[in-house]
Amino acid sequence: MKKLIIFAHQHQDSFNRAILDQVESTLKEKGHEVIVRDLYKLNFQPLLKPEDTESMKTGKIPEDIKTEQNFITESDAIIFIYPIWWSNMPAILKGYFDRVFSFGFAYTAGAQGAVPLLKGKKGMIINTYGAPEEHYESIGMNAAFKTTMDVGIFGFTGIEPVEHLLFGSVTEVDDSARKKMLEKIKETVKKSF
């Protein structure tokens, strides 16, 4: 089974990179084929341009969008790994959703409204942020992150959310705390896939 990892962090030595390495190695240990799409390494162009939407209206999908859509189509699960900045995902990932999860691919319209087109796929999200996890939990931010992705994007497109992990204070904690986070990620990935 193919697993697709969408990675959105600009630094190669970040803790998010360690998370990516952990997820990828755990999946491979379980015998899964793994495809990693590192949006920064790919220099993914995040702006949805008028010519993109005009091309899609005529059935001509821009090549970079079609490439990403093919990876999604061929995968049974998608894992998103990214930091939370300004209470949201990095702009490059938002642009990925804007361009790749397009009408006619990720959803369409029906008599009752939107119809999801990515049913049968599983989704996981792993987020990091600098604020203390307890603080974000107490003010409702963790719930907001989960609603935005698990319901707003996964639910809208038909992807089944299997887990959404949030790790706070990643810029402040020591290596032993980070190792515990990576262990939790490993166990969660093993259990989920």
Rank of each mutant, 00 (worst) to 15 (best):
A91Y: 11
V23W: 03
L93W: 10
A109E: 08
E187F: 14
I139C: 12
M89D: 01
P132D: 15
A77T: 12
G123C: 05
F103S: 07
Y129I: 01
T147M: 07
R99T: 01
K190W: 03
D174G: 00
F80R: 06
I84P: 03
I6V: 15
N43M: 09
F80P: 12
T188K: 11
S25M: 07
M141A: 15
E74G: 04
N127L: 15
G95W: 14
T147Y: 00
I6S: 12
G59C: 15
G120Y: 08
F103I: 02
A131K: 06
P46W: 09
E187L: 14
T58F: 03
A106S: 14
G168V: 08
G155T: 06
G158R: 10
F103G: 00
D150C: 12
R37G: 09
Q22A: 07
K60L: 14
T73D: 12
S176M: 03
S102E: 04
S25G: 03
Q22G: 01
I185F: 00
E172H: 11
I185W: 09
P46M: 11
K94Q: 10
G95Y: 13
S176L: 06
V100Y: 09
N70W: 04
N127W: 07
F193E: 08
K191A: 12
L27K: 03
M141R: 13
E187T: 15
K94P: 06
L27G: 05
K3D: 00
K121F: 02
E54N: 05
D76I: 10
A114P: 11
G158S: 11
E160S: 12
K30G: 08
M56V: 09
F193H: 10
A77P: 07
T108G: 15
K190G: 04
N88Y: 02
I6N: 13
K41M: 06
T67G: 00
Q112D: 15
I185P: 04
W85A: 12
M181T: 13
L165R: 13
K122L: 04
N127H: 08
D76M: 09
H164G: 00
V23G: 07
V36A: 02
K30Q: 10
L27P: 00
V151A: 03
K122S: 12
G110E: 14
Q10S: 14
M181D: 09
T148W: 13
M1F: 11
A114D: 10
Y129M: 14
E137H: 05
E183M: 06
D38P: 12
K121C: 01
I139V: 15
I126V: 13
A8P: 06
L4R: 07
D175V: 05
D21E: 14
W86T: 02
R37L: 13
L117I: 00
A143G: 09
P46S: 08
E24L: 01
K122I: 08
E172K: 14
T26L: 03
A144H: 14
M124L: 12
Y107H: 14
A114M: 13
I84A: 07
A109G: 11
A18S: 13
F101S: 04
P161T: 13
S192H: 09
S87R: 10
A131T: 14
E63M: 05
F97D: 01
E29S: 07
M89A: 05
M181I: 15
E134I: 13
G168C: 02
E134G: 02
